[in-house]
């Protein structure tokens, strides 16, 4: 197994690893950096539990080879909260019943986060499309949709402020 040096931005900080570039970004995040908030649900891009932001866009980290992230920025669920200060999306998810088992939640929140950044005033159908790559088996998506819609103005305010 040949290793390569990969240099990238992880949650706003410079990161460097010496690794087999075929290893998935999901494994890199979890095993090399101990960021276990990103979940492994299927390993094939079919459930969205591993969603992170790559260059600001939601992607399935299980499908991205480490070699591809060289020079890129990667953002995970761990970047959304600092101590007790949680992101409006996280707050809305907690308050609206958007979380049951919680396994899809980090990926779901990251999809919603990427979406709201470019769509600050979304309509419900747009929200449903934005999370259509994130399977949730518990909630039927209703309270998730409500949480994302509720978080939108808060997040917009925060971004402008």
């Amino acid at each position: 197994m040949k290793k390569q040096v990969i240099i990238f931005q992880l949650n706003g900080e410079p990161a460097e690893i010496h690794i087999d570039p075929a290893k998935s970004l999901l494994k890199v995040i979890r095993e090399e950096f101990g960021l276990y908030g990103t979940k492994a649900g299927c390993g094939k891009g079919e459930c969205g539990a591993c969603t992170v932001l790559l260059e600001g866009q939601a992607v399935n980290s299980c499908l991205i080879p480490a070699g591809k992230i060289n020079g890129c920025s990667v953002e995970t669920i761990e970047n959304l909260s600092r101590g007790e200060d949680i992101h409006p999306l996280q707050k809305a998810f907690a308050e609206k019943g958007a979380v049951q088992c919680g396994f899809c939640t980090p990926g779901m929140i990251m999809s919603a986060y990427a979406f709201l950044k470019s769509n600050p005033r979304p309509q419900p159908p747009e929200v449903r499309t934005a999370i259509s790559g994130n399977l949730c088996r518990c909630t039927g998506y209703k309270q998730i949709e409500a949480a994302i819609l509720a978080a939108a103005p808060e997040m917009d305010k925060e971004n402008k402020g």
Binding site: G37, K39, E78, G102
Partner: peptide, 14 residues
């Protein structure tokens, strides 16, 4: 809920 929305909940797979 706190651990679940922040990605800090430790599941069996973690």
């Amino acid at each position: 809920i706190w651990a679940r929305v922040t990605g800090k909940a430790v599941y069996g797979s973690d």
